Simulated assay, not measured.
Amino acid sequence: MTRSRTAATFSPPVMEARRWLDGVTHPADRPLINVSQAAPVAPPPHALRAALADIVMQDSDAHLYGPVLGLPALRDEIAQQWTRAYGGSIDPGQVGITSGCNQAFAAVIAALCDQDDEVILPVPYYFNHRMWLDMSGVRTIPLTCGADMVPDAAAAASLITDRTRAIVLVSPNNPCGVEYPAATLRAFLDLARARGIALIVDETYRDFDSRTGAPHDLFSDPHWDDTLIQLYSFSKAYRLTGHRVGAVLTNPGLMAEIEKFLDTVAICPNQIGQRAALWGMQNLSQWLAGERDEILDRRAAITDHFPALAAQGWKLLGVGAYFAYLEHPFAVSSHDLARRLVTDAGILLLPGTMFMPEGDTAGESQLRIAFANIDRAGIATLFDRLAKVAV
């Protein structure tokens, strides 16, 4: 039997970590703290759920096939709001709707790459990006970040070959949480344009960026779509995780290639979810601002409580959006430590080895905390438990 595409990559890390819970019981006075996954666990706000109910009952078209590239009204709303937020000019024809941001990435890679092409990923990387490249027969070229966990365009330049098709950046970053400086993103755009490759910027967590105003000026470039491809997700902003709505922004020519992929995979994005995303964009700006304030407060709680760990040799490598990325001080692999934390401390988190290519030992001492689903009190408890870990 020949080797399949799926056999070319590893098992989903979040699913692997969840299996560590099998057979483990947690006492009532020390319940499990699950900081393994970033997806919101709460449902959409009540107003959006009421709008969803109305959509289900009153909008007959929401139950039918729709345009492959998405609801025209949603594409138009994104174009308008993005133009105001980033500056420059974005046309609805440069916007496509997908079944979540992961599908947006998959569609873009399918449209850009052939077998044995190469894509540069800064490491630590978002593991689903690596998994899709593996399954697509595309080589992942790791770009090592510096101590600040921010990639360097000059270092990336030395990795580009005649098989390179794109560089992928995630900002605010998953897994590290860091917000890439505007100058960094501009340097990568200039590099990608000069070398004739695409720059894919995944901004799934843009709504929780701590900076005011636009996080970069890439869309103000009148020719942005000759190089830049932006990805986005509605899952985090409006808690629409189960409805699977994402977006991709690029030039109409590449969008036509993306449409081929989307038509054969899902035919159209979730019709109900798209309408929910549109309603959210038009009605929930104040609510979303409150959600951002809460996430920023939890980020502040991470830095407020970290000195207790720093005193024991831990390091905070990055924090922002939904994530904190830590270096532990123990002479044990982060994979083994993460498994032990389930039983010894009642904590489920992901080891840095899940975000690193084979042979990169940096992940052995790193851990990711996805803190968006625990409040200040939960963060205090988490750090108290971590401070008591002895290996």
Results as ranks from 00 to 15, higher is better:
Asn251Ala: 02
Ser136Tyr: 08
Lys315Phe: 10
Pro92Thr: 12
Thr381Asp: 15
Met356Tyr: 04
Val201Ser: 09
Met149Leu: 03
Cys113Asn: 00
Ser136Phe: 10
His328Gln: 12
Thr164Glu: 03
Ile78His: 11
Leu21Glu: 04
Leu278Trp: 00
Ala345Trp: 08
Ala308Arg: 05
Thr161Gln: 03
Pro142Thr: 06
Arg195Ile: 04
Tyr125Met: 09
Leu143Gln: 06
Ile160Tyr: 00
Ala276Met: 13
Ala300Asn: 00
Thr140Ala: 11
Ala53Leu: 14
Pro45Ile: 11
Phe261Leu: 07
Leu317Gly: 12
Ile55Asp: 04
Ala73Tyr: 05
Arg299Met: 13
Asp384His: 13
Ala28Leu: 05
Gly378Glu: 01
Leu64Ile: 11
Val56Met: 04
Ala62Asn: 01
Asp304Glu: 15
Pro92Ala: 13
Tyr205Gly: 08
Ala247Trp: 10
Glu16Met: 10
Asn174Leu: 14
Cys113Gly: 06
Cys145Asp: 11
Gly290Ala: 12
Phe371Tyr: 14
Gly196Ser: 06
Tyr322Ile: 06
Ala157Cys: 04
Pro27Phe: 03
Asp54Ala: 14
Trp82Ser: 05
Asn373Arg: 02
Ser60Met: 07
Phe323His: 14
Arg298Phe: 01
Asn251Phe: 09
Val150Asn: 13
Val332Ser: 15
Asp162Gly: 00
Gly246His: 02
Ala370Gly: 08
Ser36Thr: 05
Gln366Val: 02
Ala345Ile: 01
Asp190Ser: 08
Ile197Asp: 07
Val56Thr: 09
Phe261Pro: 09
Ala155Ile: 14
Pro40Leu: 06
Leu240Ile: 01
Ala362Asp: 15
Tyr65Ala: 15
Pro40Arg: 10
Leu32Gln: 08
Ile167His: 03
Arg275Phe: 07
Asn34Trp: 14
Arg298Ser: 04
Thr164Ser: 02
Ser4Pro: 02
Leu249Lys: 00
Leu143Asp: 11
Ile90Phe: 08
Lys260Thr: 15
Pro45Glu: 12
Val35Ile: 13
Asp162Arg: 06
Gly253Ala: 04
Gly246Ser: 11
Leu262Asn: 05
Val178Glu: 03
Gly318Thr: 03
Ile200Trp: 03
Ile141Pro: 09
Ser333Lys: 02
Ala310Glu: 00
Arg49Glu: 14
Arg206His: 10
Ala321Ser: 01
Leu262Asp: 10
Leu296Val: 12
Leu169Thr: 01
His328Phe: 07
Asp152Arg: 09
Ala370Ile: 00
Val342Asp: 01
Ala321Met: 04
Asp360His: 09
Ile200Pro: 10
Leu121Thr: 10
Leu249Ser: 09
Ala50Thr: 05
Phe127Ser: 06
Asn102Leu: 15
Asp336Met: 01
Pro40Phe: 07
Gly100Met: 00
Asn102Ile: 12
Phe208His: 07
Pro67Trp: 08
Pro215Tyr: 04
Pro351Phe: 07
Arg275Tyr: 08
Pro67Met: 02
Asn34Tyr: 03
Thr25Ile: 12
Val248Met: 11
Leu296Asn: 07
Leu74Pro: 04
Pro181Tyr: 06
Gly242Glu: 13
Asn373Ile: 00
Leu189Gln: 15
Ala308Thr: 02
Arg75Lys: 12
Pro27Val: 11
Gln58Ser: 14
Lys260Asp: 14
Asp293Pro: 01
Asp344Ala: 11
Asn373Ala: 07
Leu191Met: 00
Ala47Tyr: 07
Gly93Ser: 01
Arg298Cys: 03
Gln94Met: 02
Ala107Pro: 10
Ile200His: 11
Pro27Thr: 07
Glu118Asp: 05
Gln274Arg: 07
Leu112Ala: 05
Arg298Gln: 11
Ala42Trp: 13
Arg5Asn: 13
